[in-house]
Amino acid sequence: MLKINNLIVSYGNIKALQGVSLEVKEGEIVTLIGANGAGKTTLLKTISGLIAPVSGTIYYSKNEKNSSLNHMAPHEIVRLGVSQVPEGRMVFANLSVAENLDLGAFLRRDAREVRESLDKAFQLFPRLKERVTQNAGTLSGGEQQMLAIARALMAKPKLLLMDEPSLGLAPILVKEIFETIRKINQEGLSILLVEQNAHLALQLAHRAYVLETGKIVLEGPARELAMNEEVKKAYLGA
């Protein structure tokens, strides 16, 4: 579904990604773990078209149709079915919850279907429904994260990129968010989950990659990586 080959990305002369290859298959949850500054956000931003890579390819396929995401504008990538829940949530603080969700469906025209997606989003996060008229900036961190996820789902993506959804949340909320991720995955959404919370991410994901200073150093089934001695030492605090 998503296939990245030898991706190199740099900020000026700092090389943030030094030849990353990675794959997400249909229906999978793939997690990418790595320390602060490893290049995780850079990778997701590049997939979404916010940063242009120096070299390497990003292919996305849906219904047998293969398209290169290189050189595409962010909104065109969303139109193809790849949405992102960005780091730090980035909800439109100056807009209401309802407006945030409506903008999530910016590229969709069928009002009835959008309405259905909205109902589904409220089913997933009933708390958002109680706050529809509130400005997103006044929500708590957990609620903002829910809104960011719901907003991304409003585009009806096939692949969801998530950048540290657990960041800064209380453990109980983190569990709730991870439960939601499992649920939307079971409904058919493929997910690339970036996390520093390796413990939970490895429990949830099917496969995993470990990124260290711009390079993939380990990959494999999540359960195996969770047993790996190096991973345990570096990321699971064991």
Partner: peptide, 18 residues
């Protein structure tokens, strides 16, 4: 609404398909 979203952040706006 999209104008207000863009004035909040170009990146965040692009990521929702604006």
């Amino acid at each position: 609404k999209a104008m207000r979203a863009v004035s909040f952040s170009h990146d965040a706006a692009g990521l929702v398909g604006i």
